[in-house]
């Protein structure tokens, strides 16, 4: 699974928002006008995607541990996995994580409606990558989306 092709370079960013809801909305809104090959026909229905993501958060928070959150959803608007990432160096305190920590790294995973395997593999891959403290620190000090993308996508080659 090649993260470099799955992560959308232009939609990795340093987040402005510092609450869970606003941070998720900021990431979803960045997909406005998205026109990548992952789409399943027409443009993304941003409103629907937002609803699905928040419905999922209602079931169980996607905040994991050690500052990582992975809002994820299976969505009929895409046919292949799409990942975007946001960094909040100041921390999001209300994310409700498994270990109670604040969230600095939000990686959003959107997969096709029937892509159960890809869904789980991406979750597992991202979680295991971000267990690496060096990568985490590098991400937290990244100043641009481009840098965040390079760190996440390049970590595979770098053996991180």
């Amino acid at each position: 699974m090649d993260l470099a092709n799955i992560i959308d370079r232009e939609r990795c960013c340093v987040l402005k928002e510092t609450t869970k809801t606003e941070a998720i909305i900021e990431l979803v809104n960045s997909l406005e006008g998205f026109n990548g090959p992952q789409l399943n026909g027409g443009p993304l229905d941003i409103e629907e995607l937002r609803k699905e993501l928040f419905y999922r958060e209602q079931l169980m928070s996607t905040g994991l541990s050690l500052g990582l959150a992975v809002p994820h959803v299976r969505f009929r608007g895409v046919k292949s996995p799409l990942v975007i990432a946001g960094i909040q160096p100041d921390g999001i305190t209300d994310y409700d994580t498994l270990d109670g920590s604040e969230v600095n790294i939000v990686i959003m995973i959107i997969v096709g409606e029937n892509q159960h395997k890809q869904h789980i593999r991406l979750l597992s891959l991202i979680a295991s990558r971000l267990k690496d403290n060096k990568l985490k620190q590098a991400l937290l000090s990244a100043g641009s989306g481009e840098e965040i993308y390079s760190l996440l996508a390049g970590s595979e080659e770098a053996g991180l």
């Binding site: 079931l59 169980m60 994820h72 789980i120 593999r121 979750l123 979680a127």
Partner: peptide, 21 residues
């Protein structure tokens, strides 16, 4: 059959709910 992927990544079992599948 949709659950089988989760068996290969047992750490994810803690973060997932029925709604995900």
């Amino acid at each position: 059959t949709d659950l089988t992927a989760a068996f290969l990544a047992p750490e994810t079992l803690d973060w997932l709910v029925a709604g995900d599948f």
